[in-house]
């Protein structure tokens, strides 16, 4: 493995992607809205709007969510009033599925530029004439999308932790975030989600004609994540530590399958045939 060539590919793909507004804008705006602005509003606003009642009130209103909740999680809410309950529900549960959108979005938008975009701009052929192997080329391109997805996701997590704990300090008098489930989410599921975005985009890029096409097709990945969100609110599935670990495992399994298929679309002969 020629790591210098791999790094050269990763660096140039990232540099080119970051000079494309269609890539940079979503990478900045989506995390800002989804992981900073929305959480800040959802967590803080009710604190000022709702009169304080016992937590029982809110628990009745969100019946389905609390009805099937495992004891491990239910204990989190013992003795909390409405505001406190809301802060914990919103910060611990509501945003966890959203958090998976970030790595998928970042990796697929950069991946779309590096795989479909490179094809659209017809610059792949010159690369194929260099000594780089298809595997090195593939790994370089995957890293160009994967590493920034991790950086952005983890940066979001740090900011999110600050927002949530600020609310925790105000309302509960203590910092309560993150719990173990979140740590598993960040270290185990987020990388899997980043890889998922790439796997899908590589397969889609083999067919797509342009960066836009590929990026739009890959948007479908967000659907299962939204299902997770509703599943949780409907009391079907909770972001407890074991569940999060299992979700991670499931995504990694899908990743393995997708990347195996993706590598097969990425031999020199296959690429040339699509140029």
């Amino acid at each position: 493995m020629n790591t210098r060539a791999v790094r050269a590919v990763a660096r140039k793909d990232l540099r080119i992607a970051l000079r494309n507004k269609g890539v940079v804008l979503p990478i900045i705006i989506v995390p800002l809205i989804m992981m900073i602005l929305m959480p800040a509003l959802m967590i803080f606003l009710p604190i000022y709007l709702e009169p304080m009642e016992t937590g029982e009130e809110l628990r009745r209103e969100m019946g389905a969510f609390f009805a099937n909740m495992p004891a491990e999680l239910y204990n989190l809410f013992a003795g909390l009033n409405d505001q406190q309950t809301w802060v914990v529900v919103a910060s611990m549960f509501m945003f966890a599925p959203f958090f998976l959108i970030i790595p998928v979005m970042v990796s697929s938008v950069i991946g779309a530029d590096s795989f479909a975009g490179e094809k659209e701009r017809k610059t792949l052929e010159a690369l194929l004439y260099t000594p780089i192997t298809s595997a090195e080329l593939f790994i370089g391109k995957v890293l160009a999308a994967f590493l920034p997805a991790m950086v952005v996701s983890w940066a979001c997590f740090v900011l999110y932790t600050v927002v949530v704990n600020a609310a925790g300090l105000m309302v509960l008098g203590r910092m309560f975030f993150p719990n173990l489930a979140w740590i598993v989410l960040i270290l185990w599921v987020v990388p899997a989600a980043a890889a998922l975005g790439i796997g899908v985009i590589v397969l889609v890029s083999a067919k797509a004609k342009s960066f836009q096409d590929a990026y739009q097709m890959s948007g479908l990945v967000v659907i299962p994540i939204i299902l997770l969100l509703f599943g949780q609110m409907g009391g079907i599935l909770y972001f407890s530590t074991p569940t999060v670990a299992l979700i991670g495992l499931a995504i990694w399994a899908v990743d393995a399958a997708l990347l195996t298929l993706a590598v097969r679309t990425f031999g020199r002969g296959e690429i040339i045939a699509r140029l």
Binding site: K12, R15, I16, R19, N20, K122, T123, L124, A126
Partner: peptide, 11 residues
């Protein structure tokens, strides 16, 4: 030298 120059235009 490929048929189309295949250069990275943003660079």
């Amino acid at each position: 030298l490929t048929e189309s120059p295949a250069l990275y235009e943003p660079l």
